[in-house]
Nucleic acid binder design. Structure first.
Lengths: 205, 205, 205, 205
DNA sequence: CCGTAACCGAGACGGTACGTCTGGTCTTTGA
DNA sequence: TCAAAGACCAGACGTACCGTCTCGGTTACGG
């Protein structure tokens, strides 16, 4: 592969209009929230943002990519992207706190629509999914891994546990309920998950 | 709203062409496997099935609904829809067996494409999601619930455990990896999940 | 070349919507009159006609072709397409009469805009030009040829004259002035043309 | 109207880059010959000429204007802009000579494409047409007028003839055939035109 | 001789229209 | 009397250019 492909003609990022970028993010998020992902169109985003279509096509390869960036930007603005998991010495309490917060976020209508849109697209589009995981999901899961490592050092965790798998034991079920809307997603559910996962389902010896 | 709306004109199901129905299912599944969900169009299905577009629009409200029915039909043909979970008395072993089978199914390319398509659509379309959960997911999860009930009676499970939540402790993380392609989905992962969930992450007293 | 080319997929003319065809003609002529040919767009015609764009692209290869048909249709409606040249026995008078009428038509703003548009397009597009000549120009010129033939029989014309060339001696200069707007196009000019062409420029022996 | 309008900002012709001007002419003529007028774009000319788009928009108001200048420049280079009509004393012979040359030029593919392009544009754009007539057509026709004046003095022409109209009697039909491609444009046609126009169509007394 | 004003190449921008494609509806026609 | 075939309206797709604008850089005066 050649970096200077004829038809890849990377545009000059230095000249990029910050104004347009922001307007596109705002329009994209608004439309996805209002109409859903499928009914959100690039034409619609451009029109709403007061921007030429080409300005979108110049900088993003697909509708999904625009949405992903818009969503990342939304996170960065909130500066809550790195809300470190607290370490009070009580692992169960700390995890419940974070999972409850996650439940609240997944339930928040403002976040839910675009998140669902992106997730659904990721399920079906591996390339987008990789971006999504790399830039949004993994950084977030890493916080859990870190907390678990600290817990292991403090003797709050059985030694030899694969931290990554452990994290999925909490996050997996939560995501499952949210995605497939099987049953209500509540704080109680989050608490129960923590209790079950930490304590185990088998009878204590 | 009136159930017998002028334009809802429910057609006479008795006169429905079984031949066309089958052809549509086959075409739909074939196209989704070959080209993916997004590039599968109703026009394409109709053409491939040798059927008028209207014959599809008459009986299904959306592309996803066609797929769902096609997929259900596929399951019914295989009669493997109710492959009861074995009960050897060893809960861990039984669960590992089933989860490994699930891993194999989710990895099987023939099933993966339409399953992903349906799941993705369900993430974003609550109505379809409800159908999907009711007719495909819940029956499947109920088998786990039944096995756990039996395990509880046999003293293999801590009393008072919510069986449904317990099931999600196994199925949730598996689904999470599959959907988001975060890490490889292997038999070992399935085994570890069972061990962690049953044994708990906390140090044994 | 195959008449049934894959991508030529000639649509079924029998099923064509007469309603749409008429609406397209009307919209096309109206827009050309109001905004000029260059500012008339296929999108605009479709919108004005309340028609999908594809309905235009299905039946015509280009904007100019739509206009040509619209124009022909206009002529057919007026049934004035064949206003036979009078034969009073006085060739000069008859020709002056018709040429003056032609001057009037070319000067009539309602006809001028679309006629100029078509002509310009024909200058540059041989295929369209052929259609234009065959269906509009030649039938018209043939009337002159007929009148000249009659004149020859009546001894009003030098024997052996090529009637077609003779016709162009009248029509060519008229068209030239109209197309290139070199000098005013008047009845006097038409008369002078007839006098010069019939009488010749050389001194009479 | 103010000559120093805010937005008319006439650029300083003294500082103009001769290099760019030449490159633009060359690119414009090349593109028109290769791709035709319609598919020639200002962006394309700029790119081919290695010139910024603004450099074109600064000096010309339209694509057609660029082409006209490029065409004039082409003529000036050839210095054949003023190929005086010979005056051998035999008007018919002299006219036939020039008209045959004109036929050859109109038939020459190198000249034909840009000429047709300009002419077509002129048919529809009065402003451009005026320029075209003033700078290309009229000077050319004036040569005929001059020759006819000389002929009149020599008694080769009926007195009182309007020279301008007489010229159009030759040039009009020629142009007509060329523009509308009605019939082949040959030397014989040119000769016949001269004979008919000079001799007249009526029977000699 | 050094600012400063202009042209220059380059190309991003808001737009318009292109010609194609698909979605869903409506109409015709043949079995 | 259906269902196939497919024309229809609608509108999004991604591309090509439009004409304007801003950006550094490079001349070429003019103080």
């Amino acid at each position: 592969m050649n970096e200077n492909q004829a038809h890849t003609r990377t545009p000059d990022a230095g000249r990029r209009s910050e104004r347009s970028r922001r307007a596109i993010y705002d329009a994209a998020l608004a439309l996805v929230s209002e109409a859903g992902y499928a009914r959100t169109t690039i034409e619609g985003i451009a029109a709403r943002a007061g921007v030429g279509k080409q300005t979108i096509y110049r900088w993003w390869p697909s509708k999904a990519a625009v949405l992903l960036d818009a969503f990342l930007d939304l996170g960065e603005q909130a500066t809550e992207t790195t809300p470190v998991i607290p370490d009070t010495g009580d692992l169960a309490a700390d995890l419940k706190l974070v999972l409850r917060a996650t439940v609240d976020e997944l339930t928040n209508p403002a976040f839910e629509a675009p998140t669902r849109a992106l997730t659904a697209e990721g399920v079906v589009d591996p390339a987008l999914c990789a971006l999504y995981v790399e830039r949004l999901l993994n950084p977030s899961l890493q916080l859990y891994v870190d907390r678990l490592r600290s817990a292991e050092a403090a003797g709050e965790l059985r030694p030899g546990i694969d931290h990554r798998v452990a994290v999925e034991l909490f996050v997996g079920p939560l995501t499952h309920r949210w995605m497939l809307r099987t049953l209500p997603l509540t704080h109680e559910y989050a608490d129960t998950l923590v209790d079950y996962a930490l304590g185990g389902l088998s009878p204590r010896a």
